[in-house]
Amino acid sequence: MHLKESLERDELLLTAWSTSASAEMAGALADCPFDAVTVDMQHGAHDEASAFASGRSILQASKPALLRIPVGRNDLASRALDMGFEAVIAPMINSVAEAEAFARAMKYPPLGERSWGPMRALALHSEHTAESYFRSANRETLAIAMIETRQAHAALDDILALAGIDGVFVGPSDLSISWSGGEGVDPNREDMQEVLADIAKRTRKAGKFAAIFAVDPAAAPRFAKMGYHIAALNTDPGTIHAGAAVMLDKARR
């Protein structure tokens, strides 16, 4: 099932987060009962080769593959779609102009300026012909703008109004830095929880979807109640550490 179709079921999707430059690791995460896997090129160790190989491994495990590009790397956005990723997350989108530039790279005309060349995507998404891919790509490949600063929050409604933006992704750690005026990192700040809920509410009102990084996986149900559609759970090292802790606890008991 495509990511877009899963989102339309309006159930909280849980994505793993791949930071290690290993397609085998990404494939292993995809074999776990996550709903999707996100490959991180912003803060993760992935380069283009490992990111694109990881996307292939995820798709071969029949899971949706998302890619977070580095800040401002819109050239990688369209390449990621050509390589089969179903969604691209763009960090630090702080203005309508930045959102427009990202959307142009993600969408074919008339919505954007993406050029034609999805040969790897067609090989991985065998349900499509070239014609059907072109006709459906603007709808099925998702442009997700990250909301991580007070500036981005102030521009939220205008960003959501852009036809080429399909949803937003909240980075609560970075947002807490901006919200506190640089005092520190605290994604659980009490004065920010209403803001997180408001972002989800306004996104739904715009007919789009909201995602968030659940620094504490136990917060995922609370984010679902706020109206978020996707929650990212930990990084791959964090997932390994959590699994090891459970196994070692059982063994040592």
Rank of each mutant, 00 (worst) to 15 (best):
F169H: 03
A244V: 14
G182M: 10
G55V: 02
A251I: 15
A210R: 05
A145N: 00
G182P: 01
L76P: 09
A206S: 08
R114N: 11
A65P: 03
P70D: 03
G44L: 08
P70G: 13
M247T: 08
I230Y: 05
L111E: 11
S20R: 09
E127K: 06
E98L: 03
L59Q: 12
R253Y: 03
A23P: 09
F34V: 09
G44I: 07
L142K: 06
K250Y: 14
A21M: 04
W17M: 11
R120E: 09
L122F: 11
E131V: 14
E131M: 13
H2T: 15
P109R: 08
G27C: 15
K4D: 06
A97C: 00
H241N: 14
G181V: 11
G181M: 03
L7Q: 00
F169W: 14
A218E: 11
W116H: 05
A90K: 07
A123R: 15
A244L: 09
P64G: 03
R79T: 15
R202A: 01
M247Q: 03
D216V: 15
M119T: 09
M119P: 07
W17H: 13
D31G: 13
L111F: 02
D47C: 01
A154C: 03
D198S: 12
V195C: 10
I69S: 09
M83Q: 02
L124I: 02
A210H: 01
A143E: 04
K225F: 00
W179K: 13
L67A: 06
R135Q: 15
S115G: 14
Q193N: 04
R73I: 04
L248T: 12
E127Q: 15
S54K: 04
G44D: 01
K250E: 12
K107T: 02
V246Y: 14
W116T: 10
L233T: 04
S6L: 12
E194A: 15
H43E: 05
A152N: 00
A211K: 07
I144H: 04
K250R: 12
N234W: 14
L175M: 13
E113R: 13
A197C: 09
S50I: 01
R189G: 02
A231Y: 01
G164Q: 02
G84E: 11
A36C: 10
S180M: 01
S57R: 12
L29A: 00
T149Q: 02
N74C: 14
M192R: 06
A197K: 03
A145P: 08
L160S: 13
A200I: 07
P221S: 00
I240M: 14
A163C: 06
R114G: 12
K63F: 03
E183Q: 14
A65T: 13
H125S: 15
I58M: 02
T235I: 01
S173F: 08
L59T: 04
A218L: 10
R150H: 06
L111T: 13
A30P: 10
D249H: 10
D158Y: 05
L14N: 05
K4E: 05
A224F: 05
